[in-house]
């Protein structure tokens, strides 16, 4: 089954890329943007029919490779 994961920087970590995007939006005349945080999105095809097992697998993948827990959070979204 297919699992989607979003990885984002933790709130307290400076996200320079997000900041540049926000500033650019402001410069483009879009003035109502206060903050942008940039993240990563993964689609993972797991060879598992049981959704709980697939989720456990995804958790493991996130912890071991997809994120660095010092600065990043992950969310399994489906």
């Amino acid at each position: 089954m297919k699992i989607s994961v979003i990885v984002t920087l933790k709130k307290e970590v400076l996200d320079p890329q997000g900041k540049v995007i926000q500033q650019t939006l402001n410069n483009m005349g879009i003035k109502n943007v206060n903050e942008v945080r940039q993240g990563k999105y993964f689609e993972i095809e797991i060879n598992e029919k049981d959704p709980n097992k697939a989720k456990d697998s995804a958790e493991d993948i996130c912890k071991k490779l997809l994120t660095n827990s010092i600065v990043e959070n992950y969310k399994i979204i489906s």
């Binding site: 970590v13 400076l14 320079p16 890329q17 540049v20 660095n68 010092i70 600065v71």
Partner: peptide, 16 residues
């Protein structure tokens, strides 16, 4: 850093 042998992390340079 990624192996965990050293602590902390190396982020993108501040001025990108």
């Amino acid at each position: 850093i990624e192996t965990g042998l050293l602590p902390g992390i190396l982020l993108r340079n501040k001025k990108l």
